[in-house]
Amino acid sequence: MAKATIYHNPRCGKSRNTLKILEEKGVESNIIEYLKTPPSFEELKTIIGKLNIKPEELLRKGETVYKEKYKGKNLSDDEWIKVMVDNPILIERPIVVAGSRAVLGRPPENVLDLV
């Protein structure tokens, strides 16, 4: 893999470990701290497509904002994406994108599928 983009939270151990694996494999990474620079609706929709999952599967359901505002709601895919764009803390991390493929670094070794 020539270059990857990692949607990263430096406070998250899984995110740090995923980045470490990329570095150990010599993969040049564009690091996006998604809590500071959240993806746009279209970017997140594209990422979810590359992950080949439903938007709701990318939600961090243990977060307070999810429990208080969204738990039990039946929203459309686009509505869930909008929720994550508006509340980036709800986006599961880390996400590594390389070309037309993406993986969720849970566990961090998932990134090996891209290298």
Rank of each mutant, 00 (worst) to 15 (best):
K3I: 09
N110C: 07
H8K: 04
V97M: 09
M84W: 11
I47K: 00
L59N: 10
E43P: 03
P108H: 09
I81V: 13
E79H: 10
G99M: 02
C12Q: 10
K73E: 11
Y70A: 04
I32N: 12
E109F: 13
V65S: 09
A4H: 07
E56I: 15
P39C: 02
W80N: 09
V83F: 06
I21F: 02
K69W: 02
T64A: 12
G62R: 04
I6M: 03
E56H: 06
E24C: 07
I95K: 00
V85S: 09
R101V: 06
T46Y: 00
I81D: 04
R93A: 07
E43K: 09
I81P: 03
N74T: 14
K71M: 11
E42R: 04
K73R: 14
V27C: 03
E92V: 02
D78Q: 00
E28R: 10
E42F: 01
I89A: 08
T18W: 10
K67P: 02
A98C: 11
Y70M: 07
C12H: 12
K36A: 14
Y34L: 02
E79I: 03
P39T: 04
K69S: 11
K36M: 12
K25A: 15
N17S: 15
M1S: 08
G49E: 01
R93Q: 06
M84H: 12
P39D: 02
T64W: 08
S15K: 11
L75R: 11
K54P: 02
Y7T: 03
L58S: 12
N52D: 14
K45R: 00
E57Y: 11
D86E: 15
I95W: 06
L22Y: 08
V96G: 13
E57T: 07
K82I: 02
S76F: 01
D77G: 06
G99S: 12
G62Q: 08
K82G: 05
E33W: 05
I53V: 15
G99H: 13
P39N: 01
L114I: 12
G13C: 13
I21N: 02
P94V: 14
D77N: 15
H8N: 12
G105Q: 01
V65C: 05
E43I: 01
L75A: 08
I95L: 08
E43M: 04
L114C: 03
A4P: 03
L112S: 09
I31F: 01
P94E: 10
K14I: 03
M84K: 10
T37I: 04
S100R: 13
K20G: 06
P94D: 07
M1F: 07
I89D: 13
M1E: 04
T5V: 13
R11V: 14
P10K: 14
E24A: 14
W80P: 05
Y66C: 06
E23A: 13
S100N: 15
L114H: 08
V111K: 06
E79R: 00
E42Y: 01
K14A: 12
P88C: 06
E68C: 00
R93P: 05
P88G: 05
E56A: 06
G26W: 01
R101P: 00
M1V: 13
K20I: 08
N74F: 02
A4T: 03
L75H: 10
I81T: 11
N74R: 13
